[in-house]
C-alpha cells in the first residue's frame, strides 16, 4: 500500500504558502477571464475577426490552468500521480472515439472524474488541466478547454468529498449540476476561440438556436447547457460503476477515499474492521 514517507521532512510553510498563492492566482485568472469575457462581451461576436477576445480567452484560461497544475502537482502522493497517465489515456481514447461519432456528447472526462473521486478535488483539477495540455499533442483544439476541464475535476472531487458517490443515484445528479457549471464556463471558449463547436452534432444544436435568432454566444451557451449536463451525468454514473467495480484493496490505497468515507463501505471504521 502506498503511504507518505516517514523519513522525508514535511514541506516547509513557505512552500505551502507559495502553493496556496499559486492556487489562488490560478483560480483568479480563470474567474477573471470568464468575468471579463462575459461582462465585456462584444455585442456582435460574429461581426468581426474577434481575435482579441480569442487571445484573452486563450491566455487567461491557459495561464490559470498552468498555475493550478504548478500548485497541485508537487503535493500529490505517488499512488495518485501514477494514476494520472491512466486517467489521461481514458479521457483521450474515449473523447476521440465519441467526438468522431454523431452524438452530441463528449465523454472526455471519465479519467478526470475517476481521479477526482479517488484522490480529491485538487488532484481532479490538476488531472483535468493536464489532460487538456497533453491531449493537445494529438488534438490541439482541446488546449483552450484546460480551465473548464480543471473545474470539472475540482467539482467532481467536491461531490465525492461530500458523499455524493456513497449513494449510486446521487452520482448522476452531481454530474448534471457539474455539467451546468462546466458548460457555462466552456461556452466563451467555444464562442470566442472557435466561433462554434467542434462536432457536427453539437453544431446542429447551435444551428437550431441561431435559426431562432439567438446571438452566437447565446446559441453556444444554450447548446452547452443541453449537452454538458447530460454528458457529465453519464460520465459520473460510469465512474460510479467503475469505482465500485474496483477491488476493495485498490480503493483503500487512496487516503482521500478512506478519510472522507467517499464510497459506501470504505470509511475509517469499515477499513479497520
Amino acid at each position: 500500500m502506498s503511504s507518505t514517507s516517514l523519513t522525508l521532512p514535511a514541506p516547509a510553510p513557505a512552500a505551502a504558502r507559495k502553493r496556496r498563492l499559486l492556487e489562488i492566482l490560478g483560480a483568479l485568472a480563470i474567474a477573471g477571464t470568464y468575468a471579463y469575457l462575459v461582462l465585456n462581451q462584444p455585442s456582435d461576436i460574429a461581426g468581426g475577426p474577434g481575435s482579441a477576445a480569442a487571445l484573452i480567452a486563450l491566455s487567461g484560461f491557459l495561464v490559470g490552468a498552468i498555475l493550478l497544475i504548478m500548485a497541485v502537482l508537487p503535493t500529490l502522493p505517488a499512488s495518485t500521480l501514477v494514476l494520472i497517465p491512466v486517467a489521461l489515456v481514458l479521457n483521450i481514447v474515449l473523447g476521440q472515439f465519441v467526438g468522431s461519432t454523431l452524438v452530441p456528447f463528449y465523454l472526455d472526462a471519465i479519467g478526470t472524474v475517476l481521479i477526482a473521486v479517488l484522490a480529491g478535488p485538487a488532484a481532479g483539477a490538476a488531472t483535468g488541466a493536464l489532460s487538456s495540455i497533453i491531449w493537445s499533442f494529438f488534438n490541439p483544439t482541446v488546449l483552450p478547454f484546460a480551465a473548464g476541464a480543471a473545474l470539472i475535476g475540482a467539482l467532481a472531487g467536491l461531490a465525492a468529498r461530500y458523499g455524493l458517490f456513497r449513494r449510486f443515484y446521487f452520482a448522476p445528479i452531481a454530474g448534471f449540476l457539474t455539467g451546468i457549471i462546466g458548460g457555462v464556463v466552456s461556452a466563451p471558449v467555444a464562442a470566442f476561440v472557435f466561433g462554434g463547436t467542434s462536432g457536427v452534432a453539437t453544431g446542429a444544436i447551435v444551428s437550431a438556436f441561431r435559426a431562432m435568432g439567438d446571438t452566437l454566444f447565446a446559441a453556444i451557451t444554450k447548446q452547452a447547457l443541453l449537452s454538458d449536463p447530460m454528458d457529465k451525468a453519464i460520465v459520473f454514473t460510469l465512474v460510479a460503476l467503475l469505482v465500485y467495480a474496483l477491488p476493495r484493496r485498490a480503493r483503500l490505497q487512496f487516503p482521500f477515499v478512506r478519510r472522507h468515507n467517499v464510497l459506501a463501505g470504505t470509511g475509517r471504521d469499515d477499513a479497520t474492521n
Partner: peptide, 12 residues
C-alpha cells in the same frame, strides 16, 4: 480534427 470542425462551422 479539421474536417468535422470545418463541417460544423460551415453548417452553423
Amino acid at each position: 480534427i479539421l474536417v468535422p470542425l470545418c463541417l460544423a462551422l460551415f453548417m452553423v
